[in-house]
């Protein structure tokens, strides 16, 4: 059994923290894992992505082939659309619906969301606003991870993900751990209320 995940967003949005938590959970669960990241120049406000491959068997390529990603998890809606050619026919997109506009030619928001909604499996929410309303502005990425948890469940349980959050953020103190666990829970609820 395998899960190929494209993580995407804009430099600085925290997609690598999502990758770290999934990676920690997968390692603890004894799964095989490969995760290719982007470092360097593109981290400065440009598009960033990470290929994460989980499997019960060995993994060959560090990169996900076209048409094989089971999930696209994105902190930004246009950045979710950027990787559509990688999405498997039955793949799902889990994304923030709030555009991050730092370029002059950002597409029309309504058209962009309509294109997103036309895909067969989409879970989207304005996680930035959710995070602000619930006074957890720095945990938007863990809301997104919560929204993705049902789609990860064939390989990683909610419990395993929660444990991983606790371990990954432990050195930052209990307050940070709890804020991230709350955010994760909020994401789960958001996904199930849809």
């Amino acid at each position: 059994m395998k899960l190929d995940i494209k993580l995407s967003g804009v430099g600085g949005q925290g997609i690598l923290s999502i990758a770290t938590v999934i990676g920690e959970a997968a390692t603890a669960a004894g799964l095989h894992l490969k995760q290719a990241e982007v470092h360097g120049m593109s981290q400065r406000g440009g598009d960033v992505q990470s290929d994460m491959r989980l499997s019960t068997d060995g993994i060959c390529s560090d990169l996900i082939p076209l048409g094989q990603a089971d999930l696209i998890i994105s902190m930004e809606p246009m950045e979710a659309l950027r990787y559509l050619p990688y999405l498997a026919p039955k793949g799902a997109v889990i994304t923030s619906s709030k555009p991050l506009v730092n370029i002059p030619n950002y597409p029309d928001e309504a058209a962009l969301l309509a294109e997103l909604d036309a895909l067969p499996h989409v879970v989207r929410a304005d996680i930035e606003t959710l995070a602000r309303e619930h006074a957890m502005p720095k945990s938007a990425n863990m809301i997104l991870l919560g929204m993705a948890a049902p789609a990860l469940s064939q390989l990683l349980s909610e419990e395993q993900l929660r444990d991983a959050i606790a371990r990954v953020f432990a050195r930052k103190g209990m307050d940070i751990v709890n804020a991230n666990l709350e955010a994760f829970k909020l994401g789960l609820e958001t996904a199930s209320n849809r």
């Binding site: 804009v10 430099g11 120049m41 593109s42 981290q43 400065r44 406000g45 440009g46 598009d47 082939p65 076209l66 048409g67 094989q68 246009m78 950045e79 659309l81 950027r82 559509l84 050619p85 990688y86 999405l87 498997a88 026919p89 793949g91 730092n102 370029i103 030619n105 950002y106 597409p107 029309d108 058209a111 962009l112 294109e115 895909l119």
Partner: peptide
């Protein structure tokens, strides 16, 4: 054989890196 199942998105613009 292989390749994409979904075509490139329409509502897409390049997002180059920039000075902070």
């Amino acid at each position: 054989e292989g390749g994409p199942a979904f075509a490139d998105a329409h509502n897409l613009a390049p997002r180059p890196p920039q000075l902070c």
